[in-house]
């Protein structure tokens, strides 16, 4: 069917693929009381896209059903792009499968690796996929989220991340791929790490990134600011920051501040009816004598 190969306009937007491995899919009916570890084998992709792009509270992801079909979503925030959530059990490497419909035009690929589960098998799958795609789609940037890192004790997180990086690098090296184009982040939906990880991935999709960075550098120098971030208010990912090294958790405080304003506006911004101008006025916020200096 030749028509199906033509891409509809929506398909041409920068595309972000979320992939991960599911060893077996479990169809769960209505659950009364949920056992948190019933879903151990699901890597967390749907949770991630719901938390980052739909503002779902992390604890509510317990009740997400298993993904069984490719889920395509258009995001319209600071830029239009698509997120595709690929279910674990489809064999993308099957020769009968049309890879172009999925990987053609991909801007970034995020592989979600469950740090708690046995990660040997998913790593094998990941390197296989990368090697396969490198030939036909050399422009794809790969990012590995070492996910659910919150479930690992603080002092062994670094070790787990290092171990995973080493295994992937070694596997690829043995297959003849040196310096693979991969970034790694330890992530969890229960803190800001997932937003920071996504910020970096998204920045790879923003063509104007260098312009934004120059602009922020200029403001920073002129005003003697310490650090600047340009946020997307809706998702709280940052689209750009000035180019000084990132230190401390200013990003986290910034996104919590956005939460504060958005949440306040939700509770008190109901429609009063007779106010004459509902047009957007510049929103002003004053804070005086706060406990911190930004």
């Amino acid at each position: 069917d030749p028509d199906s190969k033509k891409l509809a306009p929506i398909e041409r937007k920068p595309r972000l693929l979320l992939m991960g491995l599911k060893r077996y899919a479990k169809i769960t009916g209505v659950r009364y009381l949920v056992e948190a570890n019933e879903d151990k084998c699901r890597s967390g992709k749907s949770s991630i896209s719901n938390v980052v792009f739909r503002k779902m509270p992390p604890q509510d992801t317990l009740f997400l059903p298993t993904t069984t079909a490719i889920l395509k979503e258009s995001m319209h925030t600071f830029m239009d792009f698509q997120v595709w959530d690929l279910p674990g059990q489809i064999d993308y490497l099957d020769p009968n499968f049309d890879p172009d419909s999925i990987f053609g035009g991909v801007g970034a690929m995020v592989w979600v690796l469950d740090a708690v589960d046995n990660y040997m098998e998913p790593i094998g799958r990941l390197t296989e996929t990368i090697l396969h795609l490198q030939d036909s789609y050399p422009f794809i940037k790969f990012t590995v989220f070492i996910h659910k890192i919150d479930s690992i004790a603080d002092d062994s997180r670094e070790d787990v991340i290092r171990d995973i990086m080493q295994r992937i690098t070694d596997d690829l090296y043995d297959a003849g791929l040196e310096n693979p184009p991969i970034n790694y982040y330890g992530t969890s939906i229960y803190d800001h790490s997932i937003f920071e990880g996504f910020s970096r991935v998204m920045q790879g999709l923003v063509p104007q990134l260098p312009i934004f960075e120059n602009l922020l550098n200029t403001i920073k120098d002129r005003c003697h600011f310490e650090k600047l971030y340009l946020y997307d208010v809706y998702s709280k990912v940052y689209i750009a920051s000035d180019t000084t090294p990132i230190a401390g958790s200013a990003y986290e405080l910034g996104s919590d501040f956005i939460d504060l304003i958005v949440d306040l506006s939700e509770v008190h911004g109901w429609h009063r009816g007779n106010t004459q101008d509902s047009k957007m006025k510049a929103q002003q916020i004053y804070i005086e004598e706060c406990g911190f200096e930004a």
């Binding site: 401390g248 509902s278 957007m280 002003q284 804070i287 005086e288 706060c290 406990g291």
Partner: peptide, 24 residues
């Protein structure tokens, strides 16, 4: 979140004055 940022475990006060002026 402020307490975490400032490292002040006793907890900073929220702030003395906070004012937001929104469209509605």
């Amino acid at each position: 979140s402020l307490a975490k940022f400032t490292g002040d475990t006793a907890g900073p006060d929220f702030c003395e004055k906070f004012c937001i002026s929104a469209p509605k």
